[in-house]
């Protein structure tokens, strides 16, 4: 199997699978440890609350499976909540410990609206990803362009300690935040490529070309 989409009962996995299918990637939605570890690529998607998501992962021992998969050196992809869960901790409804794979925290938007434009939270809509630090040539964004529009749905954003893992930034209201990271074999993004039209599908096409 090309891609294992990790199922921890928290999200709309259908659209991730539909995007895989569209570009010719074989994928399976699964919570089976062996199936995940056998796949070429693992995707951790997710929409929902951090604390609840993490407790689902721990209860089903998927956290250990994720650690093993990442140790294997194969490409691991986090999307939206799947990015946030990789961090040390989150301030979503109290303090929660995360998977601790990436040093840093998850914080809630505290935006200051100016007189004419309000910035609702959650951010729901399109926004630009702007290249930051390292070139995209070595990441799954290599076939995308600086300032591509992607679709975002989130109230929380990540703040990595190590700025050198940040590969794109996005601005909402008066806040510029990290919208994509690359740390060794972990590629994780705040936006939803499977909801971002052809520009988002480019990322899936790159997965297909490089790893499937």
């Amino acid at each position: 199997m090309d891609v294992a989409i990790i199922d921890y009962k928290m999200s709309n996995l259908y659209s991730v699978q539909a995007a895989c299918k569209k570009v010719g990637i074989s994928s399976v939605i699964t919570s089976d440890r062996n199936v995940i570890l056998d796949a070429n690529v693992a995707i951790l998607p997710g929409v929902g609350a951090f604390g609840e998501a993490l407790s689902h992962l721990v209860k089903s021992k998927l956290d250990e499976c994720i650690y093993s998969f990442i140790d294997s050196g194969k490409p691991f992809i986090g999307i939206c909540l799947g990015l946030q869960l990789l961090f040390d901790s989150s301030k979503e409804f109290g303090n929660h410990k995360g998977l601790g794979l990436i040093k840093g925290t998850v914080k809630k938007f505290q935006l200051h609206s100016n007189q004419s434009i309000k910035y609702p939270v959650p951010q729901i809509g399109w926004n630009k990803i702007t290249q930051s630090g390292n070139s995209w040539k070595k990441s799954l964004l290599r076939n995308n362009h600086d300032n591509d529009f992607m679709y975002f749905v989130h109230s929380y954003y990540v703040e990595p300690e190590d700025d050198s893992i940040v590969i794109s930034k996005t601005t909402y209201g008066d806040k510029e935040y990290c919208s994509a990271i690359q740390q060794n074999n972990i590629f994780a993004i705040q936006f939803h490529p499977e909801k971002s039209g052809d520009v988002g599908l480019n990322i899936y096409k790159t997965i297909k070309k490089e790893y499937c």
Binding site: G197, D198, L201
Partner: peptide, 28 residues
């Protein structure tokens, strides 16, 4: 639609229960 179109789709009409919502989300 969701097999072919990769932007968010909102669906409404007659949704009354959490199960109704779940069904529509599962459909894509």
């Amino acid at each position: 639609t969701a097999e072919d179109i990769f932007i968010p789709i909102t669906v409404g009409g007659g949704l009354r229960t959490l199960e109704d919502i779940n069904k529509v989300l599962r459909a894509g």
